[in-house]
Computed example of a mutant assay.
Amino acid sequence: MQSIRSCGGLVLQISDNFSAFQQRDIVRRDGAGTAACIIQSARLLCKRLASPAPGVVFVQKGQKIILDQGVDMKACAGDLVLIPEGATSDIINEPDGAGGYQALALQFAPDLIANLAVAEAKPVQEIKVLNGMPPAFEEAYGKAIEAIRSGPLLPDSIAASRVNEILLWLGALGHRFAPIANPGPIERLRRIINSDPAYSWRAPELAKTIGMSEASLRRKLAAAGTSFSELLADIRMTTALTLLQTTEKSVTQIALDVGYDSASRFTARFRARFDFAPSEIRGHQREVDRNGAKTDRNSAALVPAE
């Protein structure tokens, strides 16, 4: 067991179910889902983050602050965050005094969501925080993460079953993720681009894929306050943010992974999107307050946002 101070100042005893997950890592397993260990050293405000798939985040160290349409939510060590597909919010991952921010994220394979039979539970339609998950859930969660990471050591059916157990736990607590019944063209567009952010996507081919004319697609995007190029760049930058939090890849490699041949061009685009450099995710430079003002980590003086 390890002691972690919670948001309210109480000392929580967090089990050792997650002792094997102490470094950045992200693994996807077909039929089960994606597991990731998120580590962030600086307090940074990430605005307008859209979730590409339904999932949960179990906070291990520090706290996650969700700013959603004027409602602030806080998840401390031992809390679980439920995030439905398409949910968009501003997020601050706040490190604790010594160990930084750390969390284990789990996104569920679509078939598990579609086949889940817990109709009595309420669909998760917005971000929710479940406080103080019980030790039995922590144990199941650790096994689900490990099942995704285990590769051929564990049969696919067993891995899917262990991830499905987390969905059953949520159902027992009164919550379930539901597939989007009739995804609109923008949701479908997001899913396709998210499947391969590095690909040189073009509006005409994607419009044809989703059964629309290019002109109709562009009108839909304009009505939503965006454009094809803006949507593509946003998905690429959000993917890059995830890779910075969950891998030890270099900025140059991450740039390539999201479709940029030039690391400097990628860095400029990333800074324009998030108002901080990619390197700051891993523990350098500045922190921000909830309004986006920046401060040097070694100084109490606020630095105006650039």
Rank of each mutant, 00 (worst) to 15 (best):
Q2R: 15
I4K: 12
I4H: 11
Q13V: 04
S15F: 03
Q22T: 13
R24C: 03
D25Y: 11
D30N: 11
T34Q: 09
A36K: 11
S41F: 06
L49F: 06
P54F: 01
F58G: 03
Q60F: 07
Q60I: 14
G62T: 02
Q63W: 01
I65N: 06
I66G: 02
L67I: 14
Q69L: 08
G70T: 08
M73G: 11
A77Y: 08
D79S: 14
L80F: 05
I91Q: 03
I91F: 10
E94H: 12
G97M: 01
A98M: 06
G100A: 05
A103L: 08
A109N: 12
L112I: 07
A114Q: 13
I127M: 14
L130E: 06
G132H: 11
Y141C: 05
K143Q: 15
A147V: 01
I148Q: 14
I148G: 14
P152H: 13
S157V: 13
S161G: 15
S161C: 05
S161D: 15
R162M: 14
I166K: 02
L167K: 09
F177S: 06
P183A: 06
G184T: 11
R188I: 02
L189E: 07
I193N: 05
S195M: 00
P197I: 01
A198L: 00
S200T: 00
A203F: 01
P204N: 01
L206H: 08
A207D: 05
I210T: 10
M212G: 03
A215M: 07
S216A: 15
L217N: 12
T226A: 02
S227R: 10
S229A: 12
A233H: 09
T238M: 08
T242F: 12
T242A: 13
T246K: 10
T246N: 04
E248V: 03
K249R: 13
V251P: 01
V251F: 02
T252I: 03
A255M: 07
A255F: 09
D257N: 09
V258I: 07
S262D: 13
R265D: 10
F270I: 05
R271I: 00
A272W: 00
D275G: 04
F276T: 01
Q285V: 00
R286Y: 10
R286T: 04
R290P: 02
N291T: 09
G292C: 02
K294N: 06
K294E: 12
R297A: 04
S299T: 07
V303Y: 13
E306K: 15
